[in-house]
């Protein structure tokens, strides 16, 4: 999940939780769909080793940030769907605040370099 070609692995690792929580905030989803969505949205620059997503999802579930239910895919296969719990929403908004702060500090510093 943390194999990064364009973005460094540390940043990929740090962004995994906020990205997963933010995706689940849009509605329930399952592992494969989450991976595909991240690939599409990052235009392939954010590479995750697919199998590593599941330990992270399970940890989020253990921490009661997400919940899961078993359903069926269109092909009849069992599929585990994850959705956000209330503490997950709080954790997500905290992530957003933190990342927005980091972004704004960086943006301001960059702007000052060109003034």
């Amino acid at each position: 999940m943390y194999r990064a070609s364009m973005i460094r692995k540390e940043l990929v690792a740090a962004s995994a939780e906020p990205l997963i929580l933010s995706l689940l905030a849009k509605g329930e989803s399952y592992g494969y769909a989450i991976i595909q969505e991240i690939k599409t949205r990052s235009e392939g620059k954010l590479h995750w080793t697919d199998g590593m997503l599941y330990p992270v999802l399970h940890r989020l579930e253990d921490r009661k940030l997400v919940k899961s239910r078993w359903g069926e895919s269109e092909t009849g296969r069992k599929r585990k769907y994850y959705s956000l719990r209330e503490p997950g929403k709080i954790a997500m908004s905290r992530h957003h605040e933190e990342w927005t702060l980091v972004h704004s500090v960086l943006a301001n510093l960059k702007k000052e370099q060109y003034v």
Binding site: K9, V12, A14, E17, A91, E98
Partner: peptide, 14 residues
């Protein structure tokens, strides 16, 4: 929320 507790070890390992 601490990233290091949760994700960093995995990030280094894989």
């Amino acid at each position: 929320v601490s990233y290091s507790n949760f994700l960093a070890p995995a990030g280094n390992a894989s």
